[in-house]
Every structure is written in structure tokens, then in C-alpha cells.
């Protein structure tokens, strides 16, 4: 009883965590489901069929591929632009800092529906109403990923120990040597984290994408469409895979950083 009292907060915290995992458990379970009906489904029987035939639902894998392509390109561009901007904000002094901060903050605060409809209004006004598709989706995704990259890289940069760079300079490293041998490797984990965040934001976006996609279909749009007709079980296979890949990346990152710390110590 006393133990429970002492650890009440921790137990409640764990209970909240369990709550966040309930839907994931259902997604994983349903990926092995053999449903009797497409519309109302419960767990009717165990099967590996969905995992063996992931691309069976019409258009799902095409949509998935579109999402992967968009996600990859959006990540690449937003990570580069965002990292440069983060360096500017942390390392350089210039006029208009607070308006730059605001410009970077606003896309994170603006509701997606507003950003999506604004972009649509722009594309229509610019005469691109007929060309909505892959490229307009990509433009939108780079836009909303950028701020998250800046924030993530910026946090890493701001937490950096100045002394290490000073030491490199004292040992006669040129500015570019200092940057590539000291600064960049230290900031790199932040950049990598930002890239992962960008990819998952891009991959998961529905509201902005849906308004600016024209006839192109991304994975979330496929799921949305399917939700009206009955969701194929393979959607759960993709959900499960995404979850597993994310866990692998995070655990892998943790293990490498532990190993590196152990080596340093």
C-alpha cells in the first residue's frame, strides 16, 4: 500500500502511456485479421494473408510510393534549408531577429486547414489550379517541415559547448576545419533528428495535402478514401510497419549514442 502511495504519480504516468498504446495494439492485431466482412470488422480469425499480400488493395501501394517520394524530397530540402537557417539564428546577429523567429514559429502554430486553404488560394490565383499534384504537395510539405527542422537543429546548436570550438581554434584549426571536424559532427544528431521528424510529418500529413493534391493520392489520402468504403486490412500492415521502423530507428539511435558515450568515458 505504501509502495503504491509513493509511486502513485509514476503509476498514473504509466497508465497514460498504456492508453497511448491501445490503438497501436489494435492496429497490430488487425494486421493479422481475417475479416468476414469488409464494412463491419471484428477480429474473426488469424491469418498471415495481409502480410503476404500487402499490395492487394487497389492503389494502396501506389499511394504509399507517392508518400515515400514526397517524404524523401521534402525531408531533403527542408533539412538543408532549415539547418542553414538554424545556424543563422544561433550564430549570427542581424536585424529582424524577432520577425524571423515569428516567421518560423507561425507555420507551427497555424492550423493546417488555414495553411492548406491559403496555398490552394495562391495556386488557383497563380493559374495552377489544373496542375495541382506531386509538385504542389512537395512545395507545401517543404513549407511546413521547415520550421520543425529549424527548431530542432537550433536547440542542438544552442546547447553546444563553445569551448570545444575555441579549443580547435587554439590548436590552429582553420575556421572550415573547425566547422567540419568539430561543429558539424556535434550538431549532426540534431540534423538527423530533424530529418526523421520531417519525414514523419510529411508522410503523415493529410489536411494540407488533401487540399493541394489534385488527382494525386498519398497514403493518408488513400486511407481517408478507404474509410468511407471499408478499410482493407493491409492498411494495418503499413501502420504496423511504420511503428516498427520508427521504434528500430529510435532504439538504434539510443544504442549508438550510448556506445559513443561509453567510448568517450
Amino acid at each position: 500500500m505504501r509502495w503504491i502511495r509513493n509511486n502513485l504519480v509514476l503509476l498514473l504516468g504509466i497508465a497514460v502511456l498504456i492508453y497511448t498504446f491501445i490503438p497501436i495494439a489494435i492496429v497490430i492485431l488487425m494486421s493479422f485479421n481475417d475479416p468476414n466482412s469488409r464494412l463491419i470488422y471484428s477480429f474473426d480469425g488469424f491469418t498471415l494473408y495481409n502480410w503476404q499480400n500487402p499490395c492487394e488493395p487497389d492503389g494502396m501501394c501506389g499511394a504509399l510510393w507517392t508518400s515515400i517520394k514526397v517524404g524523401f524530397l521534402a525531408t531533403l530540402f527542408s533539412t538543408i534549408l532549415g539547418t542553414l537557417a538554424a545556424f543563422a539564428l544561433v550564430r549570427h546577429d542581424f536585424q529582424g531577429r524577432s520577425s524571423s523567429n515569428l516567421l518560423i514559429f507561425m507555420p507551427m502554430a497555424a492550423p493546417e486547414i488555414v495553411m492548406g486553404s491559403s496555398l490552394l488560394a495562391l495556386f488557383v490565383a497563380a493559374g495552377f489550379a489544373g496542375q495541382l499534384g506531386f509538385w504542389t504537395i512537395l512545395i507545401a510539405h517543404i513549407m511546413f517541415c521547415l520550421s520543425f527542422v529549424v527548431v530542432t537543429v537550433r536547440a542542438r546548436l544552442a546547447g553546444l559547448d563553445d569551448n570545444l570550438e575555441q579549443a580547435a581554434m587554439d590548436l590552429y584549426a582553420t575556421p572550415s576545419q573547425t566547422f567540419w571536424r568539430v561543429t558539424f559532427p556535434l550538431v549532426f544528431p540534431g540534423i538527423l533528428g530533424a530529418a526523421l521528424l520531417s519525414f514523419s510529418l510529411s508522410f503523415d500529413d493529410f489536411i494540407i495535402t488533401n487540399l493541394n493534391a489534385g488527382n494525386t493520392t498519398t497514403f493518408p489520402m488513400f486511407v481517408w478514401g478507404a474509410a468511407q468504403r471499408g478499410v482493407p486490412m493491409q492498411v494495418n500492415v503499413v501502420g504496423t510497419l511504420m511503428f516498427m521502423i520508427a521504434i528500430l530507428i529510435v532504439v538504434g539511435g539510443e544504442v549508438t549514442s550510448r556506445r559513443r558515450n561509453a567510448k568517450l568515458a
Binding site: 497501436i24 492496429v27 521504434i247
Partner: peptide
């Protein structure tokens, strides 16, 4: 949990 698609989670 939030690395699994928003829509898939909501459908769950």
C-alpha cells in the same frame, strides 16, 4: 505511437 499514421490510429 505517433509514428503510426494519424488516420490509421484514429480509425483504430
Amino acid at each position: 505511437p505517433f509514428f503510426t499514421s494519424f488516420l490509421v490510429r484514429t480509425l483504430s
